[in-house]
Amino acid sequence: MTKVLKLMKEEKFKYKYSGVIMAYLFLVLFMVFIGMFDDSFFTGRNLSNVIYTAFPLVMVSFGQTICLLTHGIDISLGMILSLSNCVCIVLMKPDEPLGWVTGVAAALVTGMVCGLINGILIGRFRLAALIVTLSMSTVYGGIALYLLPMPGGSIHKGFAKFLRGKLCGIPVVFFLLLIVLVIVRAVLNQTPLGRKIRAVGGNYAAAYATGIDAVRTKIIAHMLAGLLSAVGGVFLAAYMYSGDPTIGSSYSLRAIASSIIGGAVFSGAVGDVLGTLAGVVILTLINNMLNLLGISSYFQFLLQGIIIIAALALGSLKNVNR
């Protein structure tokens, strides 16, 4: 215990994790608050629901956090999710025993290729990340619509059953989420690649002077983001039993909000996916709460927009004071 307290007093710890800790503190208070209001909140059914709804957003948000760390951003992640979702469904062979392999593999590759294209345009050609990914978002959406003009298609039953299944009463995706969290965190915090990503985001000139291939680093970061978004797309295909070319449209903005709530900053180099996870859960719970309270879906649109702006504003203002 004293060790923990000592650690928390350390400057490095404070600097790196203040955002994360704030996010979790808020999350816990929020959960207690909802729990008091509504008895149905802490039921296994509702909690699994939260996990299912949160999972794809967690994936996209992790990707967004990586992009933010490079002092970049990727508005097209939502549409990459849509596209890989459609690719997965279209190439799925529902009736063969291993019919899910091609679909899933193609979807993941699609995500990476999309990330690669974004990365090249931003890193190599030095185009403004926001406007490039905004336009690419339209392109990816168009391709998704071309592949699957209407929501539909069918999924490999065994695969869907696996992803929707439970282990010891806990949804399988929860474990999947933990695995992804551990891997992404390890890559970002423990490997040279993670350090390069943060160095490029924190001080591009310095990173360059140190001999870091900044272009390559940015490309890899965007590819990772694309891959993670594709994982989200594959999961949604299994969860909804079908594909939908517009399913990802709202994810990009929410992913940015989750990252910022979780302590990442627009100016790069600062952020941790652990915090991002809290950010996603907070946003999901707000939705969950609005549903439990029976607020109309139209009001939810409005509230979400306001909450996201408020969250991002808090993040920006905090960053300005830094």
Binding site: I256, F301, G305, I309, A313
Partner: peptide
């Protein structure tokens, strides 16, 4: 609120939609 114009107008966009 010191928000990036991109983000702010995108957020405003969803408020207007609401």
């Amino acid at each position: 609120l010191k928000l990036d114009p991109f983000i702010m107008t995108l957020g405003m966009s969803s408020v207007i939609e609401g």
